[in-house]
Write a protein that binds this DNA or RNA. Structure first.
Lengths: 107, 107
DNA sequence: TTTATATATTGCAATATTACGATTATAAAT
DNA sequence: ATTTATAATCGTAATATTGCAATATATAAA
């Protein structure tokens, strides 16, 4: 019925799915790549770069912020976004653990 | 409008998002983990283990198959699923490249 | 051939996501 | 104080996803 039955899964599974969900949109991948290669990562520059409307970018940024993948620093009337390297490293480690512990052993 | 504007992103970005999307559900994470630790990974066992209806599991398996993450081998009236280790390794490498090349350099 | 078992497909209701126009909030500039 | 610029929020339409009952398909067993 459109609702994920989170109760039947453990918190690790739900958390992992939540991380993947945030990354599961090309705009958010593009935003992360763009932020990563710019010196100044101003929201408005992202809007110009990506080619989606400002409210749409703002919404994507909010989702990236929701798992602390990026953080925004207010600089006057602009907001400078950057990647949160701590979260970034933690997530990379989590995903690698998942990939390393999941093996094939049948068929 | 509910439609992702794939045209404005490059194929690498779209492909990466597509991989993340398949993994962005706790049931699919749970299925992969269960398949990985069982000797025999029969579809019906997965249904019993996960606690979702058979058509729902079948649909999740279809999505995992769509990016070749798992493959099903027909054994009589049963189907034995296993992880496709080639795809698994390729995806892990792709994701690590993404995480390694995305750095923080502002704020 | 009939019956039982295992899985896939279809159709649909409930909910979530994507995108954007309109509006609001905030701060700098005039 | 007013205007301008930047970004967040609200409201909403279009579309996608999740989940399951009902049904279809396929193979094994009786």
């Amino acid at each position: 019925m459109g609702v994920t039955k989170s109760q039947i899964f453990n918190s690790s599974q739900n958390q992992m799915a939540a991380i993947f969900k945030v990354l599961a949109h090309p705009a958010r991948i593009a935003i992360l790549q763009y932020i990563s290669k710019q010196e100044a990562c101003i929201c408005n520059d992202i809007v110009d770069e990506i080619g989606l409307a400002q409210p749409t970018i703002s919404q994507h940024l909010k989702e990236l912020k929701s798992i602390d993948l990026i953080q925004g620093e207010i600089e006057g009337k602009k907001v400078c976004y950057c990647i949160n390297l701590d979260t970034w490293a933690t997530i990379q480690k989590t995903l690698n653990t998942f990939f390393n512990t999941t093996k094939s052993n049948c068929c």
